[in-house]
Design a protein around this nucleic acid. Structure first.
Length: 493
RNA sequence: GGUCGCGUGGCCGAGUGGCUAGGCACAGCUCUGCAAAAGCUGCUACUGCGGUUCGAAUCCGCACGCGACCUCCA
């Protein structure tokens, strides 16, 4: 069958606000749904953080022995520009601005999104459904909700009746809201006159003649409400009730709250057992958001070509930086923090190299076993990557101490340490060594090696004036020499 | 205004009622012809004021500061 589960795993369930032991509905299978991007513009770094959070969860669930079906959607219709139920579709707006067919916009930014995911080594989900590909399922769901009397049709639009629903169900449970408070805080906005209550939300919206993205339905030409796709698609692929639903903190209300209501209304089942919400990436203490205009694209990040960036940072530096904080807390982006991560990651990766060539120095491997246990404990404690990384640096110390002959370790211990690092660093954290391509210029490498040879000869003759001149001049040209026990190496500065 | 959360050493960032991560920076040492690089070692913080407790950064209350959501956003 399957390998034993290396658990138990504890996750913070944002529905109960408690850390709970994770027990799937149908072990060893796990159903995981994460709200994906709306493909109307380039993904920024804040988006990356959320998908990275659930990438780690996906990797960890698989690692400890679960068979995971990971569904992450692409929203290619349904989100409106101004207000929930009023205004222009974001994708249609973009299409108008760029003078493209809406589906060209969708394709363009979907491709871009996939490029970004690949860049940061975020694994593709098992299923990546699109909203436009599931219109029939969404229309069927609207019908089921109408059949229960928890939605009503007005002029070709269908609205969810929140007050009626909340008279027998808990609306607001996930986000900790009360319907009275919500009503008290409602602002008057246009296009609300069709609704019975300002809390009601559209599950199907009538399209006017100029609307580009519209489909026939029992209520006329229109398009699905913006919360509906996730309910329809998660149900289709994961069942009426499934294990984990994730997304960014900012989707908790109203998006996820509405998802719950829709599923309960349509199918009579609470859809999700464990809700998980990743927290925001901030810049100077403020949320990075498309609407704030304080985001930068991955391309700008790598090149450093943005006013917030002092230099470029590699994708793995960013990945490592994000994993050094816990997903549930906010993380503030700064150049100083990025530079610290860059160095830390380099040290971790250098230790990986050292470990590859490490030779046994005697007996003992107790430290490795203890380290291994602490790594598992950290990850099983709400996917605590920062703690695991801290443990891995303890491992780095072990590796270097054995390498320096200051600690004795037998072959079994070294092998176990290798396996631990390969598993945790490469497989679970998904970090890759980026340095290999640095000295890939064969001609340059040959030239520099010739200089290194000349310098070694000069040094052998105690002609330090010459050897130092070679070193200094190379540095002027951007080549730094480093003397190690194994000989001299070089890198570009 | 409502709801929720946060405030940790020079910086970033974990965490538990007592044993007090980790990274970066810094200092000392090792290595080295010198330097750099690398490694090792050191560095004891928890917004303020009360309270609970044998003991709190960790629990409770208040104050101050900050943020998120309440409108599209990961």
């Amino acid at each position: 069958m399957s390998a034993p589960i290396k658990g138990p795993l504890f996750l913070t369930n944002t529905l109960t606000r408690k850390k709970e032991e994770f027990v799937p509905l149908r072990p060893p299978h796990v159903g995981l749904y994460v709200c994906g991007p709306t493909v109307y513009s380039d993904a920024h770094l804040g988006n990356v953080r959320t998908f990275l959070t659930f990438d780690i969860l996906f990797r960890w669930l698989k690692h400890i022995g679960y068979t995971v079906r990971y569904v992450r959607n692409i929203t290619d219709v349904g989100h409106l520009v101004d207000d929930v139920d009023h205004g222009e579709d974001k994708i249609a707006k973009r299409a108008r601005l760029e003078q493209l067919e809406p589906m060209e916009i969708v394709q363009k930014y979907t491709n871009g999104f996939h490029d970004v995911m690949r860049l940061f080594n975020i694994l593709p989900p098992s299923i990546e459904p699109t909203a436009t590909g599931h219109l029939i399922e969404q229309i069927e769901m609207v019908k089921r909700i109408l059949a229960t009397g928890l939605a009503y049709e007005v002029n070709g639009s269908v609205y969810f009746d929140v007050l009626k629903y909340s008279s027998t169900n808990k609306y607001g449970e996930l986000s900790g809201r009360k319907t009275e408070d919500l009503i008290a805080n409602t602002r008057d906005t246009e296009g609300q006159e069709e609704k019975r209550s300002p809390l009601d939300f559209a599950i199907w919206k009538k399209a006017d003649a100029t609307h580009l993205m519209k489909w026939p339905s029992p209520w006329g030409e229109g398009f699905p409400g913006w919360h509906l796709e996730c309910s329809a698609m998660s149900t289709k692929y994961l069942g009426l009730t499934f294990d984990i639903h994730g997304g960014g903190m900012d989707l908790k209300f109203p998006h996820h709250e509405c998802e719950i209501a829709q599923s309960v209304a349509a199918d009579g089942h609470v859809p999700v057992r464990y809700w998980m919400h990743g927290n925001m990436l901030t810049v100077n203490g403020r949320k990075m958001a498309k609407s704030e205009g304080n985001g930068f694209t991955p391309e700008e990040l790598v090149t450093g070509n943005h006013k917030l960036l002092e230099q470029g940072y590699s994708p793995m530096t960013v990945r490592f930086f994000m994993l050094q904080s816990h997903y549930a807390g906010t993380l503030d982006f700064s150049n100083a923090a990025m530079q610290a991560s860059e160095k830390g990651l380099a040290r971790l990766m250098a230790a990986m190299d050292t470990l590859g060539n490490l030779k046994p120095t005697g007996t003992g491997s107790a430290e490795v076993i203890a380290l291994e246990q602490r790594c598992y404990a950290a990850m099983n404690d709400d996917v605590n990557t920062p703690v695991m990384i801290a443990e891995l640096f303890e491992g780095v110390r072990l590796i270097n101490s054995v390498h320096d002959g200051k600690l004795s370790m037998d072959a079994e211990g070294i092998e176990r340490l290798r396996e631990l690092f390969n598993t945790m660093v490469l497989e679970v954290l998904g970090l890759k060594n980026e340095d290999e391509s640095k000295n890939d210029d064969g001609v340059l490498d040959g030239l520099v090696k010739e200089f290194i040879r000349m310098r070694a000869e000069a040094k052998a003759k105690k002609d330090f004036a010459t050897s130092d001149r070679i070193r200094d001049q190379l540095k002027v040209h951007g080549i730094e020499l480093m003397d190690t026990k194994e000989g001299t190496t070089w890198e570009r500065v």
